[in-house]
């Protein structure tokens, strides 16, 4: 555990909690892509199946349970509790165009051709692009609530910090996982455009709105 890994995990946790609190406090999931949240629930489910087979640490196990629990709570709030506020008309990204090719890729490029390893690989690939329905929704409506942009910022920051963590681990532990690194780079790149808008607009007190 190094500082980048820890702050990465905390940033990830912050993002998840910010989103849950936003929905809970405003009693609304307007502007949130339910499709992205379903993909994240799928990511955590397929990645953390090793909860059933191996124990790494109390930290590891509790964080996995928190992530999975929060992901399903978010999906429940969007599709059940606050369904009336869900903006499905703007959440039109075709997720099958992500899930199907990524499923195929996970079969072809993995560390080990075993069910758990293939599902883990699938989750890594899927996570890298799971935010696309959300970004697509924002580009469609042309705007995002400020609290939603904080969510996206912490969610993007998390994988960027993991990249630092992997550089650290490569130098100091010789640890190297090509699948995670490539997917992590892709994932971080997808947020770059958003990071730019966040710094130039949101941090200066303006609402994030895209030019028409």
């Amino acid at each position: 555990m190094n500082i980048f890994r820890l702050t990465g995990d905390l940033s990830h946790l912050a993002a998840i909690i910010i989103l849950l609190l936003k929905i809970w406090k405003t009693r609304s999931c307007a502007g949130i892509s339910g499709k992205s949240q379903i993909l994240f629930a799928l990511v955590f489910t397929t990645r953390y199946l090793d909860l059933l087979t191996s124990f790494i640490s109390l930290y590891n196990t509790s964080m996995k349970f928190i992530y999975i629990g929060c992901a399903y709570a978010t999906v429940y709030m969007i599709y059940a509790k606050f369904k009336a506020t869900y903006d499905g008309n703007h959440d039109t990204f075709r997720v099958e165009f992500l899930v199907v090719p990524i499923g195929g890729l996970a079969f072809l490029v993995n560390h080990d051709f075993s069910p758990l390893e293939i599902l883990w690989t699938f989750s890594i690939y899927l996570e890298s692009v799971a935010i696309l329905p959300q970004l697509f929704m924002i580009s469609k409506t042309g705007e995002a609530e400020t609290i939603t942009t904080h969510y996206l910022f912490f969610l993007g920051l998390y994988r960027a910090l993991y990249l630092m963590n992997w550089i650290w681990r490569f130098y100091f532990e010789g640890f190297f996982d090509m699948i995670a690194i490539v997917a992590g780079v892709v994932q971080t790149i997808l947020y770059c455009d958003f990071f730019y808008l966040y710094v130039t607009k949101v941090l200066k007190g303006k609402k994030l709105s895209l030019p028409a």
Partner: peptide, 10 residues
């Protein structure tokens, strides 16, 4: 060489 990685990361 076993390439499988210990999943200590989240």
């Amino acid at each position: 060489e076993d390439e499988a990685v210990a999943k200590d990361e989240l």
